[in-house]
């Protein structure tokens, strides 16, 4: 591939062969992570996550809608991701790119499969349920949007308030301000994303590493089980590698779950 000739690629390859990374991390280290919740108080929930130079904002809105045909007693969850053109020179305005769609769907699957939201608590009356919208806004791209996005989305959900529906006659009004309870959550999910850079698996690839890695795998788990996985790019992982990465994911997720609890004020 052409990337072989690239100066940055050669530099990263050289480092990798010495077991080093550009920012001094070892292969299985995260960059510094910070979570701030309720940064956009107009939204029912919000959280900003920085992971190194990656900056992601998740906003949660809750509104009334119709249930899905196959789940008439549960609320709806809709997750979208926006690769804002202000986040990178290479992002362009327009409809969601395949990358943005994949990002949103992988984050959505983790949250859904781990039952982060109590979906049955979102039932209002027949044909009327609460809908939860998660919008993941990428503000600055520098790699590993999957983990930063999952953290932001989960922290925003855990700190979200729950509007009230008041029915007068046939008309339902939504009350979004004042004394409100919290959105009912049941679980916490986090994800760990690994890249394969010149043959070596690394945790939390940054923007430069992502340009040269040839495989990626995201593992979303809670305390006990894996809830979602996604392998990406053209390269591959061996079964042995995946086995080791699963151990790392369970180990690393403990700290992230604590960070979410702290950020959500639990």
């Amino acid at each position: 591939m052409q990337q072989e000739n690239n100066v940055m690629g050669d530099f990263l390859k050289d480092l990798m062969q010495k077991g080093k990374r550009e920012d001094g991390r070892t292969a299985m280290d995260y960059r510094n992570i910070a979570i701030r919740t309720n940064v956009m108080p107009n939204a029912e929930g919000s959280a900003e996550v920085t992971m190194g130079h990656t900056k992601v904002l998740a906003g949660v809105k809750v509104g009334l809608g119709a249930p899905m045909r196959d789940k008439p007693n549960e609320g709806n969850l809709m997750t979208a991701a926006e690769l804002l053109p202000l986040a990178s020179r290479y992002y362009e305005p327009g409809p969601p790119s395949p990358d943005a769609v994949e990002l949103a769907r992988v984050i959505d699957r983790g949250i859904r499969a781990a039952n982060v939201i109590d979906m049955e608590a979102l039932f209002v009356e027949p044909e009327k349920v609460w809908e939860v919208f998660i919008d993941i806004y990428i503000l600055n791209y520098h790699g590993n949007l999957f983990d930063a996005g999952t953290l932001a989305a989960t922290a925003a959900l855990k700190s979200a308030r729950m509007p009230k529906a008041e029915k007068v006659g046939e008309e339902i009004t939504v009350i979004r301000e004042g004394n409100l309870g919290k959105l009912k959550t049941k679980n916490v999910v986090t994800s760990c994303t690994f890249g394969k850079l010149f043959g070596t698996p690394i945790l939390d690839p940054d923007g430069n590493e992502e340009s040269f890695m040839d495989a990626r795998v995201t593992i979303a788990n809670d305390e006990n089980v894996v809830r979602a996985m996604q392998k990406g790019l053209g390269g591959s992982f061996s079964t042995k590698e995946l086995d080791e990465l699963l151990d790392v994911a369970f180990e690393k997720s403990k700290g992230m779950r604590n960070m979410i609890s702290n950020a959500a004020g639990e």
């Binding site: 939204a43 949660v60 809908e131 919208f133 919008d135 301000e177």
Partner: peptide
Amino acid sequence: CRYQMAPFSSLEEHGRTG
């Protein structure tokens, strides 16, 4: 120039993207 409002930017309903 692109000006855009986030779908979660208002106190009211979830907005439409784009």
